[in-house]
Amino acid sequence: MSKLVLARILQGIPVLLIVVTATFFLVRAAPGGPFDAERSLPAEVVKNLEKRYNLDAPVLHQYVDYLGNLVRGDFGPSFRYPNRSVTELIRTGMPITFELAFYAIVVAVVVGVMSGLIAAVRPNSLQDYLPMSLAMTGICLPAFLLGPILVLIFGIWLEWLPVSGWGYSPGDKILPSVTLGSAYAAYIARLTRAGMLEVLSQDFIRTARAKGLSMPGVVFRHALRGGLAPVVAFSGPAVAGLLTGSFVVETIFQIPGLGRFYVQAAFNRDYTMIMGTTILLSCLIVILNIVVDILAVWMNPRLRKVR
């Protein structure tokens, strides 16, 4: 197993290198530079700015310099926020987004798997339709829609919860977490139901039932592992998607997280910040997919047989 993990980590290196290289040239090819502003700058000023940020060198030269700095762990200064380094921006935003994402995952997994299980155990009954209808409503209510609706109900009409902030006043973490988690909960519910139905109709379940095991026993001891396979496959990218997807929630609830930086960086053509967040995202994807693949093997012992 450890050999497998090591191999996968090694595979991550070319992935990172390709992403870094592609992104580096992509952002420079995109129209609009980091210093384009409503008021156009005198040519001299632009020249000075470009010199300051090493943008006057040939692109290949810039690329080699950037890789060199990267190896030393230096992501460079942000173009948009001149007195901040990319590392600092990421360091301030990341813990907040990770916390938000964690709560959202808890909401998504608990609600999603539960309702998926409830539905799958008795398909095509009220017990199936009710949670599945809720799940589908959840899919119809993406964060940009659910967020404002929840704020309106719980923040403005009922005055139960704050409409914005993160750790500023009690309870302000609830609405963002629910908002971010619910769309994923809906997906997970649907996928859980589908996966469970596949598994529950297989022979070994029948065998287990024949041996006298109770239904919950069968579900938890035998079926759950296999039934959650689609959910596990989905969760790798989904968790990485939370990082970028949290942008909407962070904007609606005025949360100083990384998602806002990630999207703003692209809009501002903040080259170094785009690079920094992209590198972070790719590391996350590489790691998450390793974890997910290990989880898949753990959940389905058959996968262990062949390397």
Partner: peptide, 20 residues
């Protein structure tokens, strides 16, 4: 790994470029 790479690329920039 190709899938991983496509996941990680900044999609917005990509779309803007494609449009150009």
């Amino acid at each position: 790994r190709i899938v991983d790479i496509l996941y990680a690329l900044p999609f917005m920039i990509f779309v803007i470029l494609l449009m150009v």
